[in-house]
Nucleic acid binder design. Structure first.
Lengths: 119, 119
DNA sequence: TTACTGTATTAAACATATTAGTACAGTACA
DNA sequence: TGTACTGTACTAATATGTTTAATACAGTAA
């Protein structure tokens, strides 16, 4: 499904949240599609079930995932056009642009990066 | 000089590195200007001297600061056009653009943010 | 000499993430 | 009904990294 970086400074559950979100945005995971169970994904990734549960719960809080006790966890209907994600990435981009400008990146360079991204 | 967020998840010494770097980029701290001593800054910010020392040492490693035993710590000559900072911010911007596009941000919106940044 | 400066080191305290183990209730299916 | 799944909850132990605390040493400057 995806790979983790255990030695990274970002927590495992955060990495999982990000990976799953990316799979949703890429259209790999579709609405109402069932995710691996907490225990099976934990076994597969070699982590503790509690860690997976934490990731799933936070994703549920963000509206990316919904869980049904006894049945499983699934991708939310509007996950791909999620308001939280949109706001977060937009804010992050604005901040990144500000920092880049502050660091001396000229407009032409920034424009080049944008063009390259949307080519 | 600047304010810290003790409850933040990013370490204090990382916050200090970022703040000092920003002051350099803004031209508030100039080349060869002396920084507060490890002990005085620690007292002022209410943190441990070791924490300040760690920040200074990493800034020295990145070429933003140079230290002279017994004299003090100072801003490096080429700190404002630092290669490390330039590379880091450029990479961060590229990544941020990719994520924003993946999250569904259309080119026009990204362009607006860029224009707003460089207006 | 005195009072600064940076640097180094060790140990303790603290916060957080992660693991381990257990338990309970709901669902699906034979 | 029984079995094996599912999510959820909880406590305790462990690991890791940050921060603090307390020293110590050497160089600088008045």
């Amino acid at each position: 499904m995806f790979v983790l970086e255990p030695q990274s400074r970002v927590p495992i559950y955060e990495q999982m949240k990000k990976k799953i979100t990316e799979l949703v945005l890429l259209g790999v995971l579709l609405p109402d599609e069932q995710l691996p169970s907490v225990r099976s994904l934990a076994r597969k990734l070699g982590v503790n079930p509690n860690t997976v549960q934490k990731a799933y719960q936070e994703l549920e809080h963000d509206g990316i995932v919904y869980s049904m006790g006894g049945k499983g966890s699934f991708i939310s209907t509007g996950a791909k056009n999620n308001a939280v994600i949109c706001r977060q990435t937009r804010t992050a981009l604005a901040k990144s642009l500000q920092e880049a400008r502050l660091a001396g990146l000229v407009r032409e360079e920034a424009q080049k990066l944008l063009d390259k991204t949307y080519m």
